[in-house]
Deep mutational scan, measured.
Amino acid sequence: DLSGKLIIKAQLGEDIRRIPIHNEDITYDELVLMMQRVFRGKLLSNDEVTIKYKDEDGDLITIFDSSDLSFAIQCSRILKLTLFVNG
């Protein structure tokens, strides 16, 4: 049953990962930690990372904090994230 699940599709460069999320109350910090685990070796804990999501118009919107993240989650059951490393 995928109805209650949130799917995160995260892209870093050419690498795209699909991550099912069971807890929608994820904070921004938890998201960043999850991305560091998912992209281990490509995304380091001291990297400056910018996370953006695609909205319904196809625009890339920056996620700065947990309220941005929860808004993005409300918009779509499949959250398409693009990561930019400013390392």
Rank of each mutant, 00 (worst) to 15 (best):
I21V: 11
R77Q: 14
R40E: 14
Q36M: 07
T62K: 13
R37P: 01
L81M: 10
K80S: 15
L33Q: 09
L83I: 10
S3W: 03
D1L: 05
R77T: 11
E56Y: 12
I16S: 13
A10C: 05
L6R: 10
K52V: 10
A10E: 03
D25C: 11
K54N: 14
R18A: 14
F39W: 06
R40S: 13
I8M: 06
R77L: 04
V38H: 11
E24V: 12
N46V: 11
Q36N: 08
Y28H: 03
D59S: 15
D65W: 00
E14Q: 09
D15Y: 13
N46Y: 07
I61F: 06
G13K: 04
L44H: 09
E56W: 05
F39H: 01
L2R: 06
Q11W: 02
A10L: 03
E30F: 07
K9E: 15
V85N: 10
P20Q: 13
G41H: 08
I73G: 00
L69G: 00
K9S: 15
K42F: 03
L12E: 01
K5H: 03
K9W: 12
N23A: 09
R40H: 13
L44N: 11
I8D: 02
L44V: 06
T27D: 09
Y53A: 05
L31I: 04
I63P: 01
I73E: 00
K42P: 04
P20N: 11
L43N: 03
E30C: 05
K52G: 04
C75W: 03
I21H: 08
L83S: 00
R37E: 15
E24M: 12
Y28S: 00
P20E: 14
D55T: 15
D15Q: 15
G58S: 04
D55I: 05
L31Q: 00
I63C: 03
I26P: 04
K9G: 02
Y53R: 12
D55R: 15
I61Y: 06
A72S: 02
D55L: 08
F84Q: 12
E30R: 07
L31P: 00
F39E: 01
Q36L: 11
A72I: 09
R77E: 14
L12D: 01
I16F: 11
P20R: 12
R40A: 12
L44P: 11
C75I: 12
E56L: 12
E24S: 11
